[in-house]
Amino acid sequence: MTPKYTNVHSKFKLDNLSYTYEDLMEVAYSYVKEGLPYQQELGDFLLDWLDDKDYIIVKTSGSTGKPKKLKIKKEAMVNSAIATGDFFNLKPGNKLLQCLPSNFIAGKMMIVRAIILGLELDMVEPSVLPRIDYEKDYDFCAFTPMQLKSFAKYLKSIKTVIVGGGRVSNTIIDLIKDKKPHVYETYGMTETVSHIAVKKLNNFSGQEEEKYFTTLPKIKLSQDERGCLIIEAPKLSDDKIVTNDIVDLKSDSSFKWLGRYDNVVNSGGIKLFPEQIESKLQDKIEGEFFIASKEDDTLGEKLILIIEGNNNDIDNTIFDDLDKYEKPKEIYTTPKFKETASGKVHRRKTLEALNLV
Rank of each mutant, 00 (worst) to 15 (best):
K199Y: 05
E41I: 12
I173C: 14
S10D: 11
V357L: 14
V183F: 00
G188C: 02
D252R: 02
A292Y: 03
L14G: 03
K250R: 12
L303G: 05
P101N: 08
D262H: 01
L42I: 13
G309L: 05
M146F: 09
D139R: 06
A292R: 04
Y21A: 00
W257I: 11
F12Q: 10
E330Q: 12
T64E: 01
Y138R: 08
V163A: 10
S18Q: 09
P92H: 03
V163D: 11
L129Y: 12
K284R: 14
E295A: 15
F45G: 10
Q147I: 04
L96N: 04
K349G: 01
L14V: 08
G188E: 00
A76Y: 01
G268D: 00
F45M: 06
K199T: 10
D137T: 07
N94Q: 06
I231D: 00
Q40C: 11
P126A: 02
F87Q: 00
A233Q: 08
D321Q: 08
N244T: 15
Q276M: 10
M1F: 08
I196H: 04
R131E: 15
A341F: 13
G259S: 01
I111D: 05
P37M: 03
Y19E: 01
G65M: 06
A76D: 03
F104Y: 14
C141D: 00
S342Q: 12
I158D: 03
M1Q: 14
I285Q: 06
R348F: 09
V78F: 02
E288N: 14
T190F: 03
I176L: 11
L14W: 11
G62R: 07
F87K: 09
K327I: 13
T2W: 05
F289A: 01
W257M: 10
V8E: 02
H195V: 02
Y38T: 01
Y212G: 03
V183N: 03
R167Y: 07
I219C: 02
G300R: 12
L50R: 13
G35P: 07
D48I: 11
K69Y: 09
Y187K: 04
I291V: 14
T214P: 02
E278I: 13
L322G: 10
N16V: 01
G43V: 08
V78N: 04
F337K: 14
